[in-house]
Amino acid sequence: MSSKILVVAEHDGAKLNASTLKAVACAAKVPGASIDVAVLAADASAVAQQAAAVTGVAKVVVVENPANQEPLAAVYAPQVAKLATAGGYTHVFGPSTTFGKDVMPRVAALLGVSQVSDVMAVEGSHVFKRPVYAGNAILTVEVPADAPVVATVRVASFEAAPLGGSAPIEKTSVDVALPGHTRFVSRSGATTGRPDLQAASRVVSGGRALGSADNFKLIYALADKIGAAVGASRAAVDAGYVPNDLQVGQTGKIIAPELYFAIGISGAIQHMTGIKDARTIVAINKDAEAPIFESADIGLVGDLFQIVPELEKALG
């Protein structure tokens, strides 16, 4: 049986987000898949080119419309649903990023199906594995073959599809009424010059133990020393030491770096969910009984205020 998959591209108008490459990689695991990428944008020229270069992509479907300037779910979803039905797609995939989590369930509802959230493995064209209960259980779910499959892809579970393809780009228009009830106002995000948390191969995270935004400089210094991204526990974000986009965990970012430092983080299940796929977890905590040591590959008991500067120096 062949599957026709539409992957909804995440981008910022200029650059295709790496999460899209993960979603394509997941789609490529579906037996007999033919994969198209949908780019909705005000001006799609740059992003469509990048999508066309992803290996495994058969075609890039472009919908240009000034209304697509910002990725508003209420505006995107009816267009994606229309593309899906008109194109006879059996599957519609998006990344399980805040973009995909916003848009895809709305697409699913318009197509009359529930969504499969956070696909971590493809077991068949209609059988998927996904984490539930903060990753404490892995569910294998079979979805009906006589309805479209709408899924978000857990990006930490897939290697990005490589570049090197040259798929055709097809501009199209979708005939569907777009609502004006949702208006974009602003987006604030720190461009730190540091590696992106979701893509970085090394991450240094700090927790409540840091005690202040100022003390978090220790974490930044260590991260900069090894070219790592900076992350944080929810407690550190709640306390205002760092912005929300650094939160790692069940309700923050799910990441899969080669090397993860958990510094002054106790290891609550909600935090650990975010780093289950980290290759090597290093924990530094002054409490030898802290739960983080149960999951850490390398543990060091001691005061972070002593250890972290020492470590930074030793790695020089």
């Binding site: 508003l72 990023t97 805040t98 973009f99 009830h181 949702t182 208006r183 974009f184 106002v185 602003s186 987006r187 604030s188 995000g189 720190a190 979701q198 912005p243 929300n244 986009d245 970012k253």
Partner: peptide, 11 residues
């Protein structure tokens, strides 16, 4: 709260 930081909408 979005991956890039914060987004404000009027609805």
């Amino acid at each position: 709260e979005v991956d890039a930081g914060l987004e404000t909408l009027e609805i």
